[in-house]
């Protein structure tokens, strides 16, 4: 029986966050046994040890896959961090209107978010809320008279 080789990766925590590393390791739990270390404690290096469960998986392939996923996850976490305020605002607004808090006169938004909501949100300059029939109301057409006086 072939022995499985342990892959050891050193990752700088200055570039890759702890969350991204843990999430990436979790993606490999089906195929490998993963273990994380930070040694020495004060260093910025994270050591990841991946031992394939099956002997067929090549170490180079595993290493490359891990690096690729780590970059993907780091990007995801960065984007999530950047959009955090927007997401919070959307969810709070949705909850505010769905829970009936708006009708009860309660305000669950903080001052900054509340100010960002337009005061004149009921205005409809583009006539979006206008029913189709009213928007495309046709004027009564005049009937043309033919020479004979018939239509």
């Amino acid at each position: 029986m072939k022995e499985t080789k342990t892959v050891e990766l050193k990752i700088s925590s200055d570039i890759f966050s702890k969350e991204a590393v843990i999430t990436t390791c979790c993606q490999f739990l089906n195929d490998t046994y993963a273990f994380l270390e930070k040694f020495p404690q004060k260093s910025n290096d994270i050591t990841v040890r991946l031992t394939p469960k099956e002997p067929g998986i090549s170490a180079t392939c595993l290493r490359d896959r891990f690096k690729k996923e780590l970059i993907n996850n780091t990007l995801r976490f960065n984007i999530a961090e950047r959009n955090k305020d927007i997401r919070e605002h959307i969810i709070k607004t949705a909850l505010f209107f769905s829970a009936g808090a708006g009708a009860a006169g309660k305000n669950i938004l903080d001052g900054k978010q509340d100010a960002s909501l337009d005061d004149n949100w009921e205005d409809d300059p583009l006539k979006i809320a206008l029913p189709w029939e009213e928007k495309h109301k046709t004027k009564p057409t005049k009937k043309r008279k033919t020479k004979n006086g018939k239509n």
């Binding site: 969350e19 843990i22 999430t23 390791c25 739990l29 046994y33 993963a34 273990f35």
Partner: peptide
Amino acid sequence: NKEFLNYCLSLAAVEK
């Protein structure tokens, strides 16, 4: 032993 390590990691991911 090895599965215990994996289980700890999966719990740590949920915890964060």
